[in-house]
Simulated assay, not measured.
Amino acid sequence: MKTTTIKAFGTEAANKPLHEMKIQRRELQPHDVSIEMLYCGICHSDLHQVKDDFGGSSFPMVPGHEMVGRVVAVGNHVTKFKIGDLAGVGCIVDSCRHCEYCEESLEMFCKGEVLCFNSPDKYLGGSTYGGFSESIVTDENYVLHIPKTLDLAAAAPLLCAGITVYSPFKHWDIKAGKKVGVLGIGGLGHLAIKIAKAMGAYVVVFTTSQSKVEDAKRLGADEAVLSSDAEQRGKHADSLNLILDTVSANHDVNTYLNLLRADGSVVLIVLPTEPIPIGAFNVVKGRRSFSGSNIGGIAETQEMLDFCAKHSITADIELIKMHDVNEAFERLEKGDVKYRFVIDMASLKSN
């Protein structure tokens, strides 16, 4: 298969910094679109994969799965996009297309799911490469339309962080009259506050940081609770319909299970490196549950983007240049960002 050589930023090993490299993109297939990269968000999952925190990372690796760009070429059977369209690519770039999950637009559960990086590349062999690159070639069925009203740089994190919080809110039917807890205010948590409020929920934030107690109100939270204050937490006992858990560090989930109403759920949307103990009484009492959720399907991701455009929701970002990505990873590991790094991909071309 013919290929095109482009610039990218990646690494050959978990213990090496990211640097400029050359990668190959496939020639356009009939249903492919080629997207010039404009902005790419940096997610904690990028850091986990680069550091091989869970094992199974393949190298060389080019991370990045929160991509916003412009369509520059289309295959001869493409019907959903035209040259010049604003387009986004998230975590999923292919799936089997015929299993029960694909037929229900739940591609994230498909056993044949192909991720935008660190997945087997059925076209070129080796592994797929992500958004820290000049461009990407992707099947039109896994590409999103980016609403023109959104700030493009601040919209990039919606392609992972946005759908990761939106999907469980939809699944658990969050709306006016529901009370939602958000545990942790970071890249995920700050978007969870904005989206839950736009859905009409009453939002209570739990954070270990006094400074973020104040910032939670700016983001739209109705109340903010210092997690270490048992008295403040106790005021919300047996009252929350759902708590979205965005904390990767070790923490006692049982404390928050006891804040749920009957049939409520604590929903984990991150990947802690250590097991999380659950006390049986905390779930049996009140038929409460401890659940998980992982991104969302392509159709739901488009729904989320349109919802965010309607309600003027984007991420709070720090825009960086490509050569600052290693420093950004170090700061991300320390939690030193409010609230999402986004790379201006024009800086890759100028390197």
Rank of each mutant, 00 (worst) to 15 (best):
V93Y: 05
R218E: 10
T301A: 14
V213R: 08
S293Q: 11
H311Y: 14
P275F: 06
Y256M: 03
T5K: 15
N15H: 15
A73M: 03
E66N: 02
F117D: 01
D121Y: 09
I317A: 03
E27K: 13
V50Q: 07
L260R: 02
E330N: 15
D121A: 06
T149Y: 00
A249T: 14
G125T: 09
M345L: 11
V114C: 07
L242E: 02
G177E: 08
I146L: 08
V205R: 00
M199Y: 05
N326A: 11
L124M: 12
V143E: 01
S350L: 09
S293M: 13
N141H: 14
V182I: 15
I42Q: 01
L244W: 04
K212H: 14
P63N: 01
P120R: 13
C110L: 12
H145I: 09
G186R: 09
T11K: 00
E330Q: 10
V114H: 02
F81L: 08
G279F: 09
A299Q: 11
G335K: 07
E327V: 06
S45V: 00
G297R: 00
I278V: 15
A154W: 05
Y123F: 14
F329I: 03
R233T: 03
Y202T: 14
A299I: 04
S34W: 07
L106S: 07
P168F: 11
F54W: 15
I269F: 06
F109W: 09
A201I: 12
G181F: 04
K197R: 15
P168I: 10
A315R: 03
D324M: 12
F54V: 06
I243V: 14
S228V: 04
H323F: 07
G292C: 11
V33E: 10
K16Q: 15
R287G: 02
G181C: 05
V50M: 11
C40E: 04
V205N: 00
D52Q: 01
K111L: 12
Q302A: 05
D53A: 12
Q302H: 06
F9C: 06
K111I: 05
G112R: 09
K321G: 10
C308A: 13
R70M: 10
G279S: 12
E103G: 05
V50R: 03
G286K: 00
E140Y: 10
A346M: 08
L47T: 06
C91M: 05
I136S: 06
M21N: 08
E103M: 12
R233M: 12
K16A: 15
A346T: 13
S291Q: 13
T128P: 01
K122G: 11
S133Y: 00
A309N: 06
G177T: 08
N15S: 13
R26M: 10
Q302G: 02
G189T: 09
I174M: 14
S105C: 04
K111A: 12
K82I: 07
S291T: 08
L152R: 14
E12F: 08
